[in-house]
């Protein structure tokens, strides 16, 4: 009985998903204002609304299930959770004040939340980005310590050329030229190769979704 239910459920969900997907694809290529295009647009609008709710669910999940719980249970890192909850409440307050135009005096008419974002988020992200260079050098060192292989050597050489090429010293122009060539030819080729690979992989997954071969909406082990 369960097996029969499972087969019927799979067939229904597969027919539904494949149908919606095909209509959306056809609608995206149809002339503007035709019924197919309008139906596809309707589907996409539903996705947009769901996405907005998704963000809300994400925020609530993070604040309540992760940080509030950690704070109440006094787990490790509770102090960080407290700081995060406090800043979340503050930001919500500032944003609400921005929207309601509550600021007076020198701040009248100002939008403080974007400025807060610039000051905190962007600054901290830039600072962390500075550490990435050291992390990459350390990663290359670890690669070579682990094992010396031709692909590791290639990685290390490319990194050394790129780093030395940036140095503004006399006599190192050859490295700068080599770095430019690396960026122009092999790196561009590599990027295109990766993008083509991702594109083809997406086509494979897309076809499997259209043919109801994917596992997302099927009950099978």
């Amino acid at each position: 009985m369960n097996r029969r239910h499972s087969i019927i459920g799979n067939a229904l969900s597969a027919a539904f998903v494949s149908g919606v997907a095909f209509i959306t694809i056809l609608g995206l290529f149809a002339e503007v204002d035709t019924s197919l295009a309008l139906i596809a647009e309707g589907f996409l609008q539903i996705v947009t609304v769901v996405a907005a709710f998704g963000v809300l669910i994400g925020v609530l999940n993070l604040l309540i299930f992760v940080h509030l719980r950690r704070l109440l249970e006094g787990k490790r890192g509770a102090l960080y959770s407290f700081a995060l909850l406090l800043s979340a409440i503050l930001i919500i307050g500032v944003y609400s004040a921005d929207r309601s135009e509550l600021w007076t005096g020198d701040l009248a008419g100002e939008q403080l939340s974007p400025r807060l974002y610039q000051v905190t988020q962007t600054t901290i992200e830039s600072a962390i980005a500075g550490l990435v260079l050291f992390s990459l050098v350390y990663g290359a060192f670890r690669l070579m310590r682990r094992q010396v292989k031709w692909d590791y050597l290639l990685f290390l050489s490319a990194m050394v050329i790129a780093l030395v090429g940036w140095l503004p010293l006399d006599g190192l122009e050859a490295f700068a030229d080599l770095r430019d060539w690396l960026l122009r030819i092999p790196v561009t080729g590599g990027i295109r190769g990766l993008l083509i690979g991702v594109g083809l992989g997406s086509v494979v997954v897309g076809i499997r979704v259209l043919l109801a071969q994917e596992r997302f909406y099927q009950r099978r082990p």
């Binding site: 925020v59 999940n61 992760v66 962007t122 980005a129």
Partner: peptide, 13 residues
């Protein structure tokens, strides 16, 4: 609750 959403900035740092 073992699935957690984390915010992402411009560079996901």
């Amino acid at each position: 609750d073992t699935v957690v959403w984390l915010p992402t900035g411009e560079r996901s740092l």
